[in-house]
């Protein structure tokens, strides 16, 4: 399983790179943000917080870079990402853990939905060209050019303020205590429709276009002509032969654009004050909460890597050529 092995190595290297970037960035930044921060809080920061900052930024004059790095990894494996200022003294890890499920659910549902819908539409307009469906393309061009968050703003304006169908913000009804009971789940779903819908609408265009182009390319492959020559039913040729092959680059594209979708969703959470990681990141940037920002970067990156691995598994299942023993 050469393919799988290579991908595993790639993910390990990427994870290492993300952690190292996270370690390096605060240390190579010009100026001294920590000192500025400490000055700004004028002694209101507890010693714990200052210590956490010093560890994060490597301002401990006694430690060498190498020992700091080792120390950093050590704390990482212990799940210690430092303390958040914004939610002081809550550890960063706890803040993220609390908000992560919201983001994972939102991103997961929205991106899979957008992928499925977009790919299906792409199959349709790529298979039979020269029909009215081609008119969808310019519309998608416009939608893909709109920033996610602005579409979110418009959605809120139209569907939450002007016609108050959906709630303007939040992840659930303020009067409810989070938990796994029907009323709360219903409320959470209700609150997620607008943000998820907006993510779907703004990201679906790329899938439509990509799949349409791949369908056009794959349709001229010999095996599609053979399938038609065999007199197979139209659906079988369209899905089993053309779309089945055209979807492969879509799946690898899905893996690669996850980072982009996640970024968009984070901003969407900021717009909707959705209780996910994005909203926390928004609060962290507002309060210059560096430990929290960095923790979020790290966790989000690792989450994207895990999602990538899942997409790879899907790819291996879909393309027998990758399963070839080398």
């Amino acid at each position: 399983m050469r393919f799988v092995l290579r991908r595993c190595i790639f993910y390990l290297v990427t994870a290492w790179a993300a952690v190292t970037v996270n370690f390096v960035i605060p240390r190579v930044m010009p100026g001294d943000p920590v000192q500025a921060l400490i000055n700004r809080y004028q002694g209101q920061l507890s010693t714990d917080a200052v210590e956490s900052l010093y560890a994060l930024f490597g301002l401990d004059p006694d430690a060498s870079i190498w020992s700091q790095y080792v120390d950093y990894w050590g704390r990482l494996f212990a799940g210690d990402l430092g303390l958040s200022f914004t939610f002081f003294p809550t550890p960063v890890a706890d803040v993220i853990l609390q908000s992560l499920p919201w983001t994972v659910a939102l991103v997961g549902v929205a991106s899979v939905l957008s992928f499925a819908v977009g790919t299906l539409i792409g199959v349709m307009i790529g298979w039979r060209r020269g029909t009215w469906a081609d008119g969808i393309l310019p519309v998608t061009a416009f939608l893909s050019a709109v920033p996610y968050f602005w579409l979110g703003l418009i959605a809120i304006m139209l569907l939450a303020v002007t016609w108050p169908v959906f709630p303007t913000s939040g992840g659930y009804d303020g009067g409810l205590v989070p938990g796994l009971y029907p009323e709360f789940i219903g409320s959470a779903l209700w609150h997620s429709i607008l943000p998820a819908g907006t993510v779907v609408i703004s990201s679906v265009a790329g899938w439509i276009l990509g799949m349409r182009n791949m369908m056009v390319t794959v349709s001229s492959e010999d095996y599609v002509t053979v399938a038609q020559a065999k007199g197979l039913p139209e659906r079988q040729v369209m899905f089993g032969y053309a779309a089945r092959n055209a979807v492969l680059p879509q799946v690898s594209g899905f893996a690669l654009s996850l980072g982009f979708i996640v970024s968009g969703t984070l901003v969407m959470e900021m717009v909707f004050s959705y209780p996910g990681v994005g909203f926390v990141l928004y609060q962290a940037t507002g309060g210059q909460d560096y430990p929290l920002m960095q923790g979020i970067f790290l966790i989000i990156t690792l989450a994207v890597l895990v999602a990538n691995m899942l997409a790879d598994v899907a790819y291996v299942l879909l393309d027998p050529r990758t399963r070839q023993e080398a």
């Binding site: 010999d222 095996y223 092959n245």
Partner: peptide, 16 residues
């Protein structure tokens, strides 16, 4: 029935 020019591409690569 037809046997096509490209032996390489006449078979759907993802099906047995």
């Amino acid at each position: 029935a037809i046997v096509f020019q490209g032996a390489m591409n006449s078979l759907n690569p993802v099906y047995r």
